[in-house]
């Protein structure tokens, strides 16, 4: 595909305009690539379409019925083609395991709370919450120090 680059002076610094005749698979790939350029990303899938999601927009990764999903800041959920233990080993340090089934991004955590029945509730800055268990608290604490 031939690319013409045209400078538009008053454009926002982080915006690229793509002029196309019609949207197709190839164009979608280019969009995904451009959206992920310059930052670490992960591939998330919904209805057979792949999206490149910047890790900085990932809130958590969780397992449900043997599949792994990523939850983004906008609360969209996409399937990830990796196992949770692979993610735990490869993701940056701000991602941490908090239960058998979930990894979270510590940057978006507001606070940890322990209920009187002993459930560890994690409140995110966007108002959502999840739960962890006692045995993972120590690892979280060590990661933060």
């Amino acid at each position: 595909m031939k690319v013409h680059v045209k400078i538009i002076d008053n454009l926002d610094p982080d915006i690229v305009i793509l002029g196309i005749r019609q949207q197709n698979k190839l164009v979608n790939q280019m969009i995904a690539l451009a959206e992920g350029a310059g930052q670490e990303t992960i591939v998330g899938k919904d209805f057979n379409r792949n999206h490149l999601i910047p890790l900085s927009r990932c809130l958590s990764f969780y397992t449900s019925q043997k599949n792994v999903y990523v939850k983004t800041l906008g609360s969209t959920e996409l399937q990830v083609n990796k196992r949770l233990y692979e993610l735990a080993a490869s993701l940056p340090k701000n991602f941490i395991r908090i239960s058998n089934t979930e990894i979270i991004n510590l940057e978006y955590v507001k606070e940890f709370e322990v209920s009187s029945t002993g459930i560890i509730i994690i409140h995110f800055k966007n108002g959502t919450q999840t739960s962890s268990s006692r045995r993972y608290l120590k690892k979280v604490k060590e990661r933060l120090s």
Partner: peptide
């Protein structure tokens, strides 16, 4: 206590 993610009461 070492393998589950249960609440402390349930454990």
């Amino acid at each position: 206590f070492t393998e589950t993610d249960w609440s402390i009461v349930k454990m």
